[in-house]
Every structure is written in C-alpha cells, then in structure tokens.
Design a protein around this nucleic acid. Structure first.
Lengths: 227, 227
DNA sequence: AGAAGATATTATGAATTCAAAATTCAACTA
DNA sequence: TAGTTGAATTTTGAATTCATAATATCTTCT
C-alpha cells in the first residue's frame, strides 16, 4: 500500500504551476490561460483557480480582476528588497542556531564548510554553490523556528527564477569564503550575535543582486509591456 | 458613481473571515462550517472556499483534507517564533529607515516619540501603546521596502488575536521607554546599524511573549482537543 | 483605407450540481 | 450495557453550468 492520504488537487496544481514558473516555462509577465493549464493538467477550472489564488498570495503571480492571471514580473527593486529581507532572516537564523544547535549539528556544518573549502581550492563553482547552500539551509534548520523557515522558503521561491547568472569574480569569491570562515568560528563558539551579524552582512546576497542588475527588466521595460 | 472597480468576492470574504478570527468570533481550533459562513455572507461556496485557501496560505487557518477548515491554534512556541521573526524584521526596517527616511520623516517620528513620553509620564497605557505602535509603523514605512512591510503585516495578523493581555510592570515599562530613547537618538543620527540592533533587542516583544505564557493554551491542552 | 461602433466570441467570476469522503446515529451483538 | 457494524445524513472536493465582463471581429461610415 502506498498513498493512504491523497493530497488536495489544488495543492498538486499549485506545485506544478510553481515548477512551470521556476523553470521559465511560464515567462514573467506572461498571461496564464486557465483553459490551457486545465487541459495540460487534466483538471477542471475549480482547483486550478484555487491554486492561482494561493500562488497570488505567495507573490508568485498577480491576479487582475476580470483579466486573468500573469506571472509576477520581478523588478530590480523587488529583488533587492527581497534579498535584504532574506539577509535579515538568515541573521536571525544564525542567532537562533547558536542557541539551539547540537554539538553534532555543529560538526555537520563544519564538515560541509571543509567540503566547501575544498571546492573553493579546486575552483569548482557548481559544487561550491551547492555545498554553500547546504550550509545556509543547515543553519536555517538549526534555528528550530518553523515560521522563519516557512517565510524564508517563500521569499526564496519568489526570486528563484533569477538565480542563475553567477558571474562570480575572484575577489568576491575570496571574500565570500572569508565570511564563511568567520561564520564557522562564530558558530563553533556559539556566538549568536556575531554569527547573526556576519550572516546579515554576508556579501553573497549583495553580490547576487549586483550581478542581476543586467538580467532583470527594469521599470521602463516593464511599463512598455504593460501598456 | 461610487465603485468603479468591484473587488473580487473571494477577497471580500477573506477580509471578513480575517475579522471574525481577529475579533474572536471564530475561536482558535474551532471548526469552520462552509455552509454556515456561506449563509452568513450570502455567497456561494466557491468564493468562500477560495478565500479559505488564501487564509490557509497566510497561516491563519488550517485545511484538513476532507475534514474542513479550522482556525489555526497558536501554541506558545509559535508565538515566540513569530515574535522573534518580527523583531528581526523590525531591526531591518530600522537599518533601512535610516538610509531612506527624509528629515521631515525623522521630525514626525520625533513628534510621536515626544507624545509617547507624555503618555508615559501620565501613565496613560492605552494611548502610550497606540502611539508606540505608530512609531514602529512609521519606521517600517520609512524602510521603503514593500516586501518587508507585506511580510510584517502577515506575521502581525497571525498573532493579533492574542495581543490584549498587557500586564505591563513598571520596570518593564521604564525599560521600554529607555529603549525608545536610544532608538530616537540612533534615528536622528541616522545610525542604521545601531537602530537595527536596538529594535531587534527591543524588549517589547519579549515582554509580550512573557505575559502571554498564561493566556495561550499549551501543547497539552492542544493535544487534548485534537484527539 | 482607416476609424468608430456594433456584434460575436472568448475568458473570467460565481453558483450549482454531482461525486466521494466523513460523520452521525440507530440497530444489533456479545 | 458497552461496543461494533452499517445505513442515512452531512460535508467536503471537484466538475459543470450560467452570467457577465473583456476581447476580437466585422460592419459601416467618413
């Protein structure tokens, strides 16, 4: 026996639409045709529309009354604002993690840190990024604050689709690794205030924003399409 | 002519249900009858159910598959976690406000601060609280980060219904006012780091949590009802 | 030919209907 | 009498239908 509990259809649909947006199959600003998606998923309009309402409240799409839904357009300011917020949340996660993490948990993060350093020395950017992300996720999980995690996921989801252009300069990379050195020291000392401070200031976010300045349509392009 | 744009029905319904929850007309853990609410609002089940989905994604209610909706029960841990988060967001709002606020904006906050001090000297708790809240809202608005404001509103909404029991001791009150003195100094100096730090540590939140320990059902009571 | 208006078509908003799951309650058994 | 089974009722989940607003198309007139 496999699935006892069958998830609601609208949740399933919401997940699928999220994927489509993340993958770029639904382009920013693109109009979402209810009928088309219904046929694609093989469901009626009712659960689809429920899913769209949820996605709208998550900030992934926008619902224009009587004029359908469209994938939320990301402006540079929106992304900046979101990253500022994510920085603040990471800062909090660091403070809380120091209070709640077990010694084993610290060791696990340390292991990830060392692995990340190896990838840095090998100039293996993809693996570096992956392990880097695992470290941040690990600290977030160690915070033991589910509301925080939920909110961080939501923010992360919103900007996920612009997270590709990683033109990491050598200087930036060096400084990011340096930040991480300080982070692990603070974590092992369980110095929450300090870890929080480092995470808030961690240039990773600012770096990404900087590198995004080119790829995101600015307000002018936005208005042109909306008109 | 009055209303050009007629808001969607589900948004209207969601607002009404939010009110009911906030006012306590729908008790925590209470089962929400679709039919009952439909009759109450004079709408069909479709927009009501859409509204419920949105409220669930906001964390105000929970949807149990095939078993309807119930008002989210607040555990002490949830409220603590939420307040920690709100503290972090306020901290960020302080940092950003120092960067973005106009001189007039600072003057306006200063005026509120002075008014708050008067209420403190008069031991006028209700007005003190109201002006206090205006100050925090003012800083939040000055942050010029809409994502932040949206997220803060959502968190605030979640815990709004337990924000009544204000047993402010004289000592706590004195220290809260002291915090505010430091806040206004940091703001007028546009010292973002410092204002952020103060807001994060501001004991107002911790105080409220402490005073709530009694009024919220703990996990045991919760389990008893859920069983 | 091009613009303005009228009509047709399509898409959205909301109510209703149908199906399936959960709950209630009465009858039956031990 | 307590517990269990099973039909009847209620409630939820999802599809369909109906109404209305938006869009596209087609005239018609200048």
């Amino acid at each position: 026996m496999s699935k006892i509990q069958h998830r609601s259809l609208y949740l399933e649909v919401a997940d699928r639409v999220r994927e489509l947006i993340e993958q770029g199959d639904l382009a920013p600003g693109e109009r979402i045709s209810e009928k088309q998606l219904c046929e694609r998923f093989g469901v009626s309009r009712t659960p689809l529309r429920e899913a769209l309402k949820v996605l709208a409240s998550e900030g992934l799409i926008e619902l224009l009354p009587n004029r359908g839904a469209r994938v939320m357009r990301l402006t540079l300011k929106m992304v900046k604002d979101t990253y500022d917020l994510m920085g603040a949340l990471e800062g909090l996660s660091g403070e809380l993690a120091c209070q709640n993490i077990s010694d084993e948990g610290i060791k696990a993060i340390r292991a990830l840190h060392d692995e990340m350093l190896r990838h840095y020395r090998d100039r293996n950017l993809p693996d570096y990024f992956q392990v880097n992300q695992k470290i941040h996720e690990g600290i977030l999980a160690a915070s033991a604050n589910e509301v925080l995690q939920e909110m961080y996921s939501n923010l992360s989801q919103r900007v996920k689709r612009v997270r590709y252009s990683k033109k990491m300069t050598d200087d930036y990379w060096r400084r990011a690794v340096q930040d991480h050195e300080h982070m692990i020291i603070a974590l092992e000392a369980r110095d929450g205030k300090r870890l929080g401070q480092i995470l808030r200031d961690h240039l990773c976010n600012k770096l990404e924003v900087a590198s995004l300045a080119g790829v995101i349509e600015d307000e002018h392009a936005l208005n042109a399409v909306n008109a």
